[in-house]
Amino acid sequence: MVNPGEVPTASVSDLPSQDLVLLDVREPDEWAAGHAPEAVHIPLGELPARAAELAELPDDKPLYVVCRSGGRSARAAMWLNAAGIADAINVAGGMKSWHTEGRPLVGDREGVPPEVL
């Protein structure tokens, strides 16, 4: 088991502004409320069963993993790295920091502005 302190981590301000490969591991209701426009959504609990989908993502760039505040994404990044599936980096502060930093947010709920649950 990898020590959580050993999980590669980046702050939102350190993320590339273009060609960002972002995996959102939050639950469907959190995703629908607000998410990064280009993110791929695979809830943490579904990650092992859907790991093959990650093979379709570019493998020449790191995979940034995000949740609401950084806890679930740290576990996901740890698992992805340990399993050799991706060069995964946890996004510190999660979507809360994403939103605070003014990064774009889109939602799936009609007539409701996007928000981070």
Rank of each mutant, 00 (worst) to 15 (best):
A86I: 15
V12W: 00
G102T: 13
N3S: 14
M1E: 08
A32T: 15
V25E: 00
E46P: 10
D59C: 11
D14K: 11
D19I: 14
E30D: 13
D24M: 05
N81L: 07
E30Q: 12
R68N: 12
H35F: 04
L20K: 13
L22I: 15
A92E: 02
A52T: 14
D108L: 13
D29Q: 08
P37W: 09
K96S: 02
C67A: 07
V21Y: 00
M95F: 04
N90G: 04
V66A: 00
W79I: 13
D87F: 09
R109S: 10
S73R: 09
D108V: 15
L54Y: 02
E6I: 14
A33T: 15
P43Y: 10
H41R: 08
L63S: 01
R68Q: 14
L23D: 01
A77C: 09
T100I: 14
V2F: 07
E110Q: 14
A39G: 07
L15D: 06
L44P: 09
D24E: 04
N81V: 13
A82W: 14
Y64N: 03
Q18N: 09
H99G: 04
C67K: 06
V2L: 11
S97W: 04
V116K: 01
A39S: 11
V12Q: 00
P58Q: 02
A39E: 00
E38C: 00
G71A: 06
P8W: 04
K96D: 06
P28D: 08
P58K: 09
R109P: 06
V12S: 00
P62C: 03
E46T: 14
G84T: 12
G70M: 05
E115R: 15
V116H: 01
L117H: 15
E53K: 13
L57S: 07
A51Y: 00
V12Y: 03
A76Q: 04
W79H: 05
V21R: 01
A88F: 06
R72K: 09
L23R: 06
A86F: 06
G94N: 02
D108R: 06
G45T: 13
A76P: 01
E38Q: 09
A36P: 01
R26S: 04
V112T: 15
S13Q: 11
V112M: 12
N90R: 01
I89C: 01
S17C: 11
R26I: 10
A10R: 07
P48I: 14
Q18V: 15
M1V: 12
E46M: 12
G45Y: 07
G5V: 09
W31C: 11
A86D: 01
L63C: 11
P104A: 02
I42V: 13
R103T: 09
A82T: 15
T9W: 04
G34N: 04
S11K: 13
E110V: 15
A33E: 06
D29C: 08
E46C: 07
S97D: 03
D29G: 07
V66Q: 04
P58V: 13
V7N: 00
D59T: 15
P114C: 12
S73W: 09
V66W: 02
S17V: 14
V91P: 05
A92C: 07
A33W: 10
H35N: 11
V7R: 01
A33H: 11
A52S: 08
